[in-house]
Amino acid sequence: DVAKAIINHAVYGKAQNRSYERLALLVYAVGPRLSGSKNLEKAIQIMYQNLREDGLENVHLEPVKIPHWERGEESAVMLEPRIQKMAILGLGSSIGTPPEGITAEVLVVTSFDELQRRAPEARGKIVVYNQPYVNYSSTVLYRVRGAVEAARLGAVASLIRSVTPFSIYSPHTGIQEYQDGVPKIPTACITVEDAEMMSGMASYGARIIIQLKMGAKSYPDADSFNTVAEIIGSKYPEQVVLVSGHLDSWDVGQGAMDDGGGAFISWEALSLIKDLGLRPKRTLRLVLWTGEEQGGVGAFQYYQLHKANISNYSLVMESDSGTFLPSGLQFTGSDKARAIMEEVMRLLQPINITQVFRNGEGTDINYWIQDGVPGASLLDDLYKYFSFHHSHGDTMTVMDPKEMNVAAALWAVVSYVVADMEEMLPRS
């Protein structure tokens, strides 16, 4: 009854709410943990101590280099057709504006296609994208590519409707990318409300002028670490089940949900297993990634360093899409491996979360999954998750200890059973 013991300990027993309380301690002490920031390095040092004090094994920090970008002061004021200050959040890696800002007329479009159709109008303008939210993966392209597509046409800045299914005047930040050969222009997100307002104004033929000021600046890459802790396997110690979340966050809110929740239920999984005196046959390895929000930068360097042992990785797991009440496990792997994971998830019947979905993935574990290692992630309440994602609302207030208990129990059962099975998961 190992599975029941883990579930009871996590959901009903002494470990109840531990991951929530541990997370609160860290985020209240450190705050948001932007890549390259002192906060992030402080959080990593605290976690190093936490994991050692928790009695986990082989606790160490693996040095990597991650991007260092700082937001600076930023503001946007609509000057015409009326004066209105707008909430914005500059996008990661964006350049700043001159000190006096950029004041220009706005061209509002609702898609890249419309921008192409109206290309001659874009020169010298601030392009505002009022793209409707479809889902995160397709809509995020506007945040990532909005500046480049506008700059190609001579735009002087871009403002992009926040990528979120729900807004209470909440701007959402995130990474964006420039492209070689295309001029770099400042880019920021605006709220859904302001994007729709300007779209409405434009449809009535109003002339819209915005003054945009951004103090964003990029610096040379910073030193950071992936944080590692283990329960070393009793029989096949060289083989690994990797359980992970990322410690870095954006510089908004507290980074509690993204990805404090994922990092701390992953730690909790090892703590639960250790509490019960269990030691799986394979090594259970916790990795708390750094530089995830910049595109899995820390994880890529881990992959480069460890890929020589790829055949020893039975399963890679990342929780990075919320730790509310999960509805199941997402899994990527061969049909046989999927059938095995369906058997494993039956063990979660006591908490009635037994489903296996497709698309197990995570920015930090996708390097392994693309090379054939089975991968898993939690399927969670994505509407709620993306409503708070990368916004000032990403705080402990959105987290729920009971939901974290359940998520941790699922994470612990899956990682332990796969780590303790006599054989590794098959690959196609």
Binding site: A3, K336, V344, M424, S428
Partner: peptide
């Protein structure tokens, strides 16, 4: 030495099923 397999026979799968059930 890695011992993952590229596939699992039905009988092996049955064994794995029973092994997993033992955790419950």
């Amino acid at each position: 030495k890695a011992i993952y397999r590229n596939d699992v026979s039905q009988s092996a799968f049955q064994e794995i099923k029973e092994e997993i059930a033992s955790y419950g």
